[in-house]
Design a binder for these strands. Sequence first.
DNA 1: TCAATAGATTAGACAAATTCTAAAGAAGCG
DNA 2: CGCTTCTTTAGAATTTGTCTAATCTATTGA
Lengths: 140, 140
Amino acid sequence: MSGPRPFANALEMLRSAGLRPTRQRLALARLLFDKADRHVTAEQLHGEAVSAAVPVSLATVYNTLHQFIGAGLLREVVVNPGRSYFDTNVSDHHHFFLEESGRLVDIPGDRIDVSNVPLPPAGTAIRRVDVIIRVERDED
Amino acid sequence: MSGPRPFANALEMLRSAGLRPTRQRLALARLLFDKADRHVTAEQLHGEAVSAAVPVSLATVYNTLHQFIGAGLLREVVVNPGRSYFDTNVSDHHHFFLEESGRLVDIPGDRIDVSNVPLPPAGTAIRRVDVIIRVERDED
DNA sequence: TCAATAGATTAGACAAATTCTAAAGAAGCG
DNA sequence: CGCTTCTTTAGAATTTGTCTAATCTATTGA
Ligand SMILES: [Mn+2]
Ligand SMILES: [Mn+2]
Ligand SMILES: [Zn+2]
Ligand SMILES: [Zn+2]
């Protein structure tokens, strides 16, 4: 269903990223990647770690999330002012955003076409295209 | 070039929105709408007002921006965590975002095609589609 | 095996953006 | 003018995220 995970285990993943496999990073990597793709906030992930009896500070959660982004293991999604989501799906894709619940739902990159894009401003090159489809509860 | 402004003056605009034309709201409306379309932060607009010797607090700037959004005179653009842009262009359009400078550049809605969009999650309806094209300085 | 060292974690202070509160001021209306 | 409602405001509070400096730990190689 979802493609094979690129890393057999968290240890190998951290090694490949050049990050020491500490207790905290191993635990966070497992929470993030051992299940299906997810969109979590830093607070949520910290809460999960604490619930799983993993001693880790919020500062380390932020440090680790940013290191994982730097290693290409995560990406950041900004849909709301004042709070970031961290996305374990790093393939080319877009999002539905359900404003009432704050949930993000993936849209595979090949399920949406963005075409006829004008040239970027002089001296700049496109780094990424983000499509956010904001949805609301339907009046039934 | 840009279509005719829907309101001859700030006073009429506020009246139509059902907002009392106070000194602060009149001044902010003129700063926002008397020139070409713009993307400003609350701090920027407050700075402009203070420079123009308009006595207004930052709290009132935020109040007014949100009232203008409620009246459909402005929209909010979120591209970065921790800071919002307020966009005086409320027509259907998208954005280039220049990360180095923090500038937003409009892309007219008819200059970009988003097609083949999947159905939104059950029980939801599309409210808005935002395309953010993130660009970076080109290596020359 | 065991220091030495570089890198990691942490508590708590700090910062930035925004919202809230409650009191004082101004607009609309008769 | 006087009453009522809406608006503004200073400053406190809140939220999200970053920084600092002290402590801890993984790695390495003698
Ligand atoms: Mn995955
Ligand atoms: Mn305009
Ligand atoms: Zn995603
Ligand atoms: Zn715009």
